[in-house]
């Protein structure tokens, strides 16, 4: 598991931790039931304040990616496939939107873009 924090990013540090842990969970790098480092340990390792890691864990818990057991720590939740799929779909949409915007900028039509997409999709198979 990797967490890299940028101090100059516009995103809050807790959001960066949240996003990166979420990615690790969605990609199955962190498996269901696996325990996460304690908030205090993570704060020390990342050299950030405790309240930052605490907030990141709280958000992950709220969105169902992890659960906590008092006195034992935090663990990765069982990811139901619906949720995983939904999260991934959202990612795809965002990437496609970027592609569409870039296409419009240089005047590529929808038909042309579709063609390009079809070619690339087939090549990957």
């Amino acid at each position: 598991m990797q967490i890299i924090i940028s101090n100059s990013s516009k995103q809050h540090i807790y959001e960066q931790i949240y996003e990166q842990l979420k990615t690790s969970i969605l990609s199955n790098e962190l498996e269901a039931g696996q325990s996460l480092p304690s908030m205090r340990q993570l704060a020390k390792d990342l050299n950030v304040s405790l309240i930052t890691t605490k907030r990141a864990y709280e958000e992950l818990e709220k969105t169902g990616f992890i659960y906590s057991i008092v006195g034992k720590g935090s663990f990765v939740s069982e990811q139901n496939s619906e949720m995983v799929k939904e999260a991934k779909m959202k990612g795809i949409e965002e990437q496609l939107l970027t592609a569409i915007r870039n296409s419009k900028d240089i005047g590529i039509s929808l038909t042309e873009l579709k063609e390009l997409l079809t070619i690339l999709y087939r090549e990957e198979e």
Partner: peptide
Amino acid sequence: EILHQLMQ
């Protein structure tokens, strides 16, 4: 770092 260690 020492303070972080203490806060464990």
